[in-house]
């Protein structure tokens, strides 16, 4: 049986008076890749960021409705946001390694969680770099600066940094949009491997990428979830004309 890892119920999100998400109800299955697609400003990144309460950092944001992760409402008052973000990691469009060594980038999360055991950290760093499919490229220069890595390598390092705190869900906001085709294909291959152990939610503007890597696709437009289904269904025979127009590039 496929478990539903994330569930939102009648979710509304406002930036001040402006409604950015309008009554979004969705169930995201465990250990699958779910792609969020839609034109700029449709609310997909806003939705993604609300899954680990990144929107809390914006003062004007107000959220109504419920968001559950493992059946726990993550907007409950007693939720520890730091723990939530450990469980729900995030990778951004632009790779953002710290100006530290490769090793220290990956060890950063475990260290601030109080782990200072050298051999354990070494193990975590190696496992995370291996899982992020970058170990072979950096194993001989772990103490070099992360800033010397290529864009594609930096992005995989950021994924390794996310994995190091042992998350269950990884949110990705256009993780390959700034990368060349080879680096993009490495990231896509990595996402494919990661879904064996993690639930992945990815925002992408690349229609072919969503089709290639995701199991489920959600199409957002003007803050509404227009259609949500298996990716195969969305890309061969979507139910809504708006979805068809968008994925075939005939929007507007």
């Amino acid at each position: 049986m496929i478990l539903q890892k994330i569930r939102t119920e009648n979710m509304y999100l406002y930036y001040g008076n402006k409604m950015a998400l309008n009554n979004v109800s969705i169930s995201i299955p465990e250990k699958q890749v779910t792609a969020l697609i839609g034109p700029s400003g449709c609310g997909k990144s806003t939705f993604l960021r609300s899954l680990n309460r990144m929107n809390d950092l914006i003062d004007s944001v107000k959220i109504e409705g419920n968001i559950f992760v493992d059946d726990i409402n993550i907007y409950d008052k007693n939720i520890d946001v730091v723990n939530l973000r450990k469980k729900v990691g995030m990778v951004f469009q632009k790779s953002n390694p710290f100006a530290k060594s490769i090793f220290d980038n990956v060890a950063y999360g475990p260290r601030i969680n109080g782990n200072n055991n050298k051999s354990e950290l070494k193990e975590i760093v190696e496992k995370s770099l291996r899982d992020a499919a970058i170990w072979d490229e950096v194993k001989d220069r772990l103490h070099d600066s992360a800033m010397g890595l290529s864009g594609g390598q930096q992005q995989r390092l950021c994924i390794a940094r996310t994995l190091a705190v042992d998350p269950e869900i990884i949110l990705m906001d256009e993780p390959a949009s700034a990368l060349d085709p080879i680096s993009t294909s490495k990231i896509e291959e990595l996402i494919f491997q990661l879904k064996e152990n993690f639930t992945i939610v990815i925002v992408t503007h690349n229609m072919q990428q969503a089709a290639r890597i995701s199991d489920n696709t959600a199409f957002f437009y003007l803050g509404e979830l227009i259609e949500y289904n298996k990716t195969k269904k969305i890309y061969t025979n979507p139910d809504k004309k708006q979805t068809e127009d968008y994925i075939s590039g005939r929007f507007g």
Partner: peptide
């Protein structure tokens, strides 16, 4: 063109 949906069919 990587067609999808009705175009693909």
């Amino acid at each position: 063109q990587q067609p999808v949906a009705t175009d693909l069919r």
